[in-house]
Simulated assay, not measured.
Amino acid sequence: MSEKTNTLHTAILKNNCPTCFSTDGLELVFTQNEKENAFCYKPNSKIDESLYCKNCKNVIYPVNWTTDIERVYNYNKKIAETKRLYLKVKPLFYILIISGVAVMAAVTYALISSL
């Protein structure tokens, strides 16, 4: 089972960094994990977010966020669209179902014709 991370939304913020006080280095990224196997794939319901400063090269954790950063975060979280949470099956799943039904029909036909 493999996992893939999809970037849903990226925003460059003009707020001050709480660490280095720069106004042009903050980047807010929203990501979502997707699990995939041979039969299907399904997006995870949890959305991960990270705030990174490109000037001081630090991850800014929510404990250090200012009220301005919090407001911009809430706005961008509404913009970030999640992938629909549904199970999408692959062609291998359909092949196995059809072959299973065919085997059951053949066994049933063989039992009925032997009577």
Results as ranks from 00 to 15, higher is better:
Cys40Leu: 13
Pro18Ala: 04
Phe93Asp: 00
Ala11Asp: 00
Thr67Asp: 15
Glu81Asp: 07
Ile60Arg: 01
Asp48Asn: 14
Ser99Lys: 02
Tyr41Ser: 12
Tyr86Leu: 13
Lys42Asp: 09
Val29Asp: 02
Pro91Val: 01
Asn55Ala: 02
Arg71Ala: 12
Glu49His: 10
Thr31Asp: 07
Glu27Lys: 11
Pro91Arg: 00
Glu34Gln: 15
Glu70Ser: 14
Cys56Phe: 06
Trp65Tyr: 15
Lys54Gln: 11
Pro91Met: 00
Lys14Asp: 13
Ser22Val: 05
Asn33Gln: 15
Leu92Glu: 01
Cys20Ile: 06
Arg84Lys: 15
Tyr52Cys: 08
Ile47Asp: 00
Leu26Thr: 01
Cys40Ala: 14
Leu26Arg: 02
Val29Gln: 10
Asp68Val: 05
Thr23Pro: 08
Lys35Ile: 08
Asn16Pro: 08
Glu81Ser: 13
Gln32Glu: 06
Asn37Gln: 09
Thr10Asp: 00
His9Phe: 08
Lys88Asp: 07
Arg71Gln: 11
Tyr94Lys: 09
Gly25Val: 06
Lys35Leu: 12
Lys78Trp: 02
Pro43Lys: 05
Cys56Gly: 06
Lys54Thr: 13
Leu51Arg: 08
Phe21Gly: 01
Asn76Gly: 03
Thr23Met: 05
Val89Lys: 12
Asn64Trp: 09
Asn44Tyr: 08
Asn44Pro: 05
Val63Phe: 14
Gly100Ile: 01
Ala11Asn: 02
Ile79Phe: 06
Tyr75Leu: 12
Pro18His: 05
Gln32Thr: 05
Ile69Thr: 01
Leu51Ile: 06
Asn64Ser: 15
Ile79Tyr: 04
Glu81Pro: 02
Glu70Cys: 11
Tyr41Pro: 06
Asn55Asp: 07
Ile47Ser: 03
Leu28Ile: 05
Glu81Gln: 13
Phe30His: 01
Gly100Glu: 00
Glu27Asn: 09
Pro91Cys: 00
Val59Thr: 15
Phe93Arg: 01
Asn16His: 14
Lys83Asn: 14
Cys17Met: 03
